[in-house]
Amino acid sequence: MPFDTEKFAAHLREHAGRHSQSSCAKFVRRALEAAGADTGSHPNYAKHYGPILLRNGFHAISVDNPDGFAFQKGDIVVMNATKKGHQAGHIAGYDGTQWISDFVQRGFWPGPAYAREKPSYVVYRR
């Protein structure tokens, strides 16, 4: 099934806020749909998006150190929950220069709790 990485990145950029709206799964899902992905009956929690990505032709890639990794436009990260406060986990897409979910992130980790705890994650690439 066709997936337009440019449309995905553009949709992320156009709809992102300045701060988290606690809606990363909704925003990334809408960007996926705008790019041609079929999200069907999607999960509510970001941490459960792996199967949808696999079904849409993405595959998991190995990223041992996100700080030194060369991400590509269209990469998507799915993070597990943090121990306190972020039970839904997180999902974000890379637009070629930055990570975006429901807001433009400052880096790979979406916030201080994630940066501190570094929960497990999977990066998906198409």
Results as ranks from 00 to 15, higher is better:
residue 75 D to N: 02
residue 64 D to E: 15
residue 115 A to S: 13
residue 34 A to D: 10
residue 57 G to C: 08
residue 117 E to S: 01
residue 47 K to W: 07
residue 51 P to R: 06
residue 70 A to V: 15
residue 23 S to E: 14
residue 53 L to G: 00
residue 114 Y to L: 00
residue 115 A to Y: 07
residue 52 I to L: 07
residue 117 E to W: 01
residue 3 F to D: 07
residue 35 A to N: 05
residue 10 A to M: 04
residue 123 V to M: 01
residue 85 G to P: 01
residue 123 V to K: 00
residue 116 R to D: 09
residue 30 R to K: 15
residue 104 V to H: 15
residue 75 D to K: 10
residue 27 F to N: 00
residue 63 V to Y: 11
residue 124 Y to H: 03
residue 56 N to G: 11
residue 31 A to I: 07
residue 100 I to R: 06
residue 33 E to K: 13
residue 22 S to A: 13
residue 31 A to K: 05
residue 29 R to D: 10
residue 18 R to W: 04
residue 77 V to E: 03
residue 81 A to Y: 06
residue 65 N to T: 14
residue 44 N to I: 13
residue 19 H to F: 14
residue 18 R to E: 14
residue 114 Y to H: 00
residue 22 S to W: 06
residue 73 K to C: 11
residue 62 S to E: 14
residue 117 E to F: 01
residue 44 N to L: 11
residue 21 Q to P: 05
residue 46 A to L: 06
residue 108 F to H: 03
residue 122 V to F: 01
residue 60 A to M: 03
residue 50 G to A: 13
residue 68 G to M: 08
residue 117 E to D: 09
residue 88 A to S: 09
residue 123 V to P: 02
residue 109 W to F: 06
residue 95 D to A: 05
residue 41 S to I: 14
residue 63 V to D: 06
residue 49 Y to V: 04
residue 125 R to H: 02
residue 46 A to D: 03
residue 67 D to A: 15
residue 50 G to K: 04
residue 29 R to K: 15
residue 91 I to Y: 03
residue 124 Y to V: 08
residue 103 F to V: 07
residue 100 I to Q: 05
residue 101 S to P: 01
residue 87 Q to N: 09
residue 49 Y to F: 15
residue 111 G to L: 01
residue 126 R to N: 09
residue 96 G to V: 14
residue 97 T to F: 09
residue 106 R to K: 11
residue 27 F to R: 00
residue 124 Y to D: 02
residue 3 F to P: 10
residue 73 K to A: 15
residue 122 V to L: 03
residue 22 S to T: 13
residue 51 P to L: 03
residue 122 V to N: 01
